[in-house]
Simulated scan of single mutants.
Amino acid sequence: MIYIPSYIKINLTLRVFVPREDGYHEIATLFHKLGPVEWLGVKKFNDPAQKDVINSHNIVISGTNIINRAIDFLREKGIKLPPMECDIWKILPIGSGIGAGSGNAAAMVEWLSTVHDIDLDPSELASIGADIPFFLSKSKTALATGVGERLKLLDQLTGIYALLAIPDKSISTAEAYRKLDEDRKKGNINIVPVSHAIYEALNIYGNLERRKKIGLLPNDFISILRKESDFYDKFFDLCNTFKSSLAWSVSGSGSSAFCLFTDKYEALKAQEVMSSKLVEISKIFVLE
């Protein structure tokens, strides 16, 4: 069995625009890759009549796994792939806003592309997971527009450590977007212009490069999540007390929250503080 590392992402910024006719929302976001966190074990079956087998360990995944969809997509493109078995050692719960499932699918696609010499446009895989093109890029940080598939790759932000906290409650992406749209119809949340969102993201990227303290990073879902739980305000307040903390926010549409540090030791100390003071935390990591 071959073992493949799988990465996650956080959204350093996230601005959401009006829904498209297909139901998806255009976004402008600053992606940042972390990990690896999860691992895939893959082996090929010798019997061509065998069906693919996807085993998820630790966390049950209902319905068709995104890895199945990625494999089926490649076969529909005319790529001849043998049947295979994939074991996923899940650590991160669904609905955390960190793209763990897309990271799994991207890890599988990248491995298959190398083994079978597949020449594939990563943006084609956005229909399976909007952030898969970013995971397949070689960059650690990127500005993304469209539904997340149009990328401007940026120089890597190095020497920054992310304290990632996942609370014991999740929110589905569909539900988060529904509530955001409802609040906007009521006039509670404004939509920023696309040009402002891009300028904002690149300005924040520059400040992070210079290690300038920023504080709360912009994410249109913050107000939605604050209504769901007081966990986020408590987390943000604690982030502001740490000496080397740079910035903090939520990732994607939630439920994860993160805090960025310039010092790994300080991030590990903050992990201990967060764990002792926030009983809502289900999982907490320090990642680079």
Rank of each mutant, 00 (worst) to 15 (best):
V194M: 14
D52G: 09
I171H: 09
F45W: 13
E228R: 15
E85W: 11
A201H: 02
D117S: 15
F31S: 06
E110L: 11
A197E: 06
W39P: 01
Y199T: 14
L157G: 05
D87Y: 12
D183E: 15
E228M: 13
C259I: 11
F45L: 05
S62H: 14
F242W: 07
N58T: 13
I204S: 04
G206W: 01
S137E: 06
T141R: 01
L81D: 03
D263L: 02
D230P: 01
F285Y: 15
V18I: 10
E76Y: 00
W89A: 07
A247F: 00
Y232Q: 08
I91Y: 03
S96E: 01
E21W: 00
S253D: 07
N55T: 12
I67V: 15
P48R: 11
C259W: 12
H196I: 14
P122Q: 04
I79F: 15
F236G: 00
N188V: 11
I91V: 13
A162I: 09
W248I: 04
W39Q: 12
V273G: 05
G254C: 03
N104C: 13
L81E: 03
V18D: 14
N58H: 15
I281C: 00
K185W: 03
I171E: 04
I71H: 04
S172V: 01
L74E: 05
I198D: 00
S127D: 09
G103Y: 06
S170P: 05
N104V: 13
P93N: 03
L225H: 04
D168M: 10
L12P: 01
L125K: 02
T173Q: 08
M1R: 08
N68L: 05
A165P: 06
N68R: 13
D183C: 12
K140P: 05
Y265M: 12
S255N: 03
A257H: 04
S102Y: 07
L30C: 08
H57Q: 09
L287A: 08
F236M: 04
P5V: 08
E266L: 02
E228F: 08
E21N: 13
E200C: 06
V286M: 03
N219Y: 12
P167I: 08
A28M: 03
I8V: 15
S255F: 11
F45T: 07
G41P: 06
G215S: 06
L287W: 10
K44S: 00
I132E: 00
T173C: 10
I59N: 04
K185R: 15
V115R: 11
F31I: 04
D121Q: 10
F242K: 04
G252V: 07
R15M: 05
N104Y: 01
L34E: 00
I214F: 04
V115A: 09
V60M: 09
F31N: 02
L112V: 11
L151P: 09
N68A: 02
G97C: 10
D117K: 15
